Simulated assay, not measured.
Amino acid sequence: MPESLPEVRLVEAGPFGHPAVEHDWPQQAGPCRALQKALSTYVNTVDDLPPVRRLGGVDIGFEDGGRITRAAAVVLDAQTLEVIDTQLARVPTRIPYIPGLLSFREIPGALAALERLATLPDLILVDGHGIAHPRRLGVATHLGLVTGLPTIGVAKKRLTGSYEQPPDERGAWAELQDRDETIGAVLRSRVGVKPIFISPGHRIGLESALSFTMSALTRYRLPETTRVADKLASNR
């Protein structure tokens, strides 16, 4: 029997005290895609940020042949990039990898890790896409909706859209476009390396997403939020 489409519920206080979206978690591709389309109507890509004193990072790894999701959540001081808190959560993996549906595989673990933090971030940089997604609902956007927290997608590879290569200068960027819509930016985070793909997740616009990503960069290709979270999620 086909799986029914889960109901979408708006709540004034989600798991972290902010207005958020609640829904059940389907495990079949069709209902997942339909839910993405429904959720995309709730996305806010206009700046709706508190003063950003703490930056968060989220990254996901897997154990036991993919049966266990190993999720990392970290909090860094937004000015110094010093680590304030790190947490790791292990949960059973709900669905296999399906292109375009990564959030349904990864977010349950990310939520478990975020819930363990003693100090919540004001803004989360997620290892994945925001609205730079065929249905405008990448893992960063989906995480922003269900937590109510502002999020940015910071991805290593393009998922959708077209672009011209940005100049080989740190901080240079080019628009990532899908038809007539700008869905993100292709950012040169370091001279001589491949660019990264920045897109609004939720409660933030593209200009601010670029600015906060740049503020979290040091001498590496990826922001420190992602680097710290990746080491924890990958057990390195």
Results as ranks from 00 to 15, higher is better:
R54E: 00
D85F: 04
D59F: 13
T45M: 02
N44M: 01
Q87F: 11
G61F: 05
G66P: 03
E63C: 06
G61V: 00
L76G: 00
G61H: 08
L49K: 04
E82A: 07
A73R: 08
N44L: 04
V58H: 07
G100R: 11
G61L: 14
I107R: 02
T41S: 02
D47S: 03
I84N: 05
P96H: 08
G100V: 06
V83S: 01
Y97G: 04
V43G: 07
G57T: 11
L49V: 03
T69M: 05
Y42T: 08
A72F: 05
R70P: 11
A72G: 08
L88I: 15
V58N: 11
P92F: 09
P50S: 12
L88T: 10
G109D: 08
R53N: 05
P96A: 12
I68T: 15
D59H: 11
A89P: 06
I68R: 07
V91K: 07
A71L: 11
P108Y: 11
A73G: 09
R67F: 05
G65K: 06
V58R: 02
Q87L: 02
V75H: 06
P51W: 09
T41Y: 10
D64T: 09
I107K: 01
R54T: 02
D47H: 11
L76H: 00
R94D: 01
V43C: 13
P99N: 10
D77T: 04
P50N: 03
R105S: 03
E63F: 13
Q87G: 09
D47L: 09
L111I: 07
G66Y: 00
L101S: 02
L49F: 00
G100S: 13
D85I: 00
R70F: 10
R94L: 15
A72I: 09
R94Q: 08
D85S: 13
D48G: 06
R94G: 04
V43Q: 04
R54V: 03
G56N: 10
I98Q: 11
P51F: 06
I84Y: 03
L76V: 01
L111G: 02
G109S: 03
A110G: 09
P99G: 06
Y42F: 15
A110R: 04
D59K: 11
A89T: 09
